[in-house]
Design a protein around this nucleic acid. Structure first.
Lengths: 233, 233
DNA sequence: GCATATTTGTCCGTATGTATA
DNA sequence: CTATACATACGGACAAATATG
């Protein structure tokens, strides 16, 4: 049964469950699995099977579910269970609207060199991943780049509040056909953004807005070209 | 069965009211209580007592707790229980840093009249509350005013993501000595902001930044003048 | 420092309600 | 419509951690 392979992986992940509270541990394991694409958008999270695979009770699992729902990775349908979120087209539009606000604000303000250094190091990691043709890592570094951009705003609270945004962006990337090509295409644009920032270029905000516009349209085109076979959210 | 149509409507209406699970209902009740100040920052939320008071099982209550923790109203300490969050001074600084980003961005962009109308109506409600000397309502409308400001960004996702910010602001207001005087003082400044917005004044961003700076300093002064007797978060 | 009581963390069994084949 | 599978919610139980005297 190939349908069981996902749960078999969970059994091995069970070894990781060691410290902190069970429900937190379970949430961590499931989060990793979802972000890695083990559970694709729209797929159902069976209480029973996951309970058995992780050897935890339903109560504990349901607490973990509650956490992940709040993080935006799962959606909960009353008396039906929980499913991996399937970002709709309108959700994508809204995601980019939200990113436009916080990312354009971030690049518009005067930045301190030490915070920019984080952006620089992420850019280096992305380059390394691209050179090694590690497309999964490239996708992660791409998101990390924009997380580092948001951090320029100087509010750690804002950073943590936006976690669901980046989670859902990863879900979106799992829905497009060729994430590798997608991320590779934006590697150079990230570099241009960084150079504009380093130069103190006041047009960085405009560049960021254009960047997000293009990305949004490309993602929407991908989602349009795909016959949505997933269960509705 | 035309005789049943009325009752059928009632049944469907009742179904909608009860369409949320117990844990969600419990979370709603507790949230209201906390935001209303029934549970003050730092106070402990006893599982046993709340279970008995609401006649729900511990499992159900713990799911509700998980939700409220995720919303920022409660903090969870392993093997110790959950407590109403006590915003620290650094938390207040960060809260205003976050608000500065999203609220200044909101007033900087060109706004559509229909969305501004929401700000206008909230302003009217606040005036009415002030005239009626209903200080609790005034505090709520003050926060609603800024929620309406953020909504000018045009991202409903951003609006929902910021829910913990407004929740925590209410907790902060519960910690200052005279919330009524505080909110009354900012009623006029809200009006000035609104008028600047209606006039399309490009200096609205600066006005908002000043507004938040002043509010932050006033809140911090309040928290400094108070011997923090609450358990540490 | 120690013993006790309280509270939390976790699991189990089960009854009820809901959705779907 | 019936039957099955599943989610929801409850209560009890026990170990572990914490608070209290």
């Amino acid at each position: 049964m190939s349908a069981n392979t996902v749960y078999e992986e969970l059994v091995s992940a069970r070894a990781k469950l060691e410290q902190s509270s069970r429900s937190v541990q379970v949430a961590n394991v499931l989060r990793e699995g979802i972000l890695a694409g083990a559970f694709l958008p729209g797929s159902r999270m069976s209480e029973l099977e996951i309970c058995e695979a992780l050897a935890v009770s339903r109560n504990t699992l349901r607490e973990a579910f509650r956490t992940l729902v709040e993080e935006g990775l799962l959606v909960h349908e009353l008396n039906r269970g929980v499913f991996v979120r399937t970002p709709s087209e309108s959700a994508v539009v809204d995601l980019y609207a939200c990113r436009r606000v916080v990312e354009c604000a971030a690049v518009s303000r005067p930045h301190t060199p030490d915070r920019l250094s984080r952006v620089v190091s992420v850019m280096r990691d992305a380059d390394a991943a691209a050179a090694a043709e590690d497309w999964v890592a490239l996708g992660s570094h791409n998101i990390s780049f924009h997380i580092a951009i948001v951090a320029l705003n100087g509010s750690t609270r804002l950073d943590t509040l936006l976690t669901p945004i980046w989670n859902e962006m990863r879900l979106v990337f799992h829905m497009i056909s060729d994430p590798a090509a997608f991320h590779l295409g934006y590697l150079e644009r990230n570099r241009e953004l960084l150079e504009a920032l380093q130069a103190g270029d006041s047009s960085a905000a405009k560049a960021m807005a254009d960047y997000l516009d293009d990305a949004e349209h490309e993602v929407l085109a991908e989602l349009n070209g795909r016959t949505t076979r997933h269960p509705a959210a």
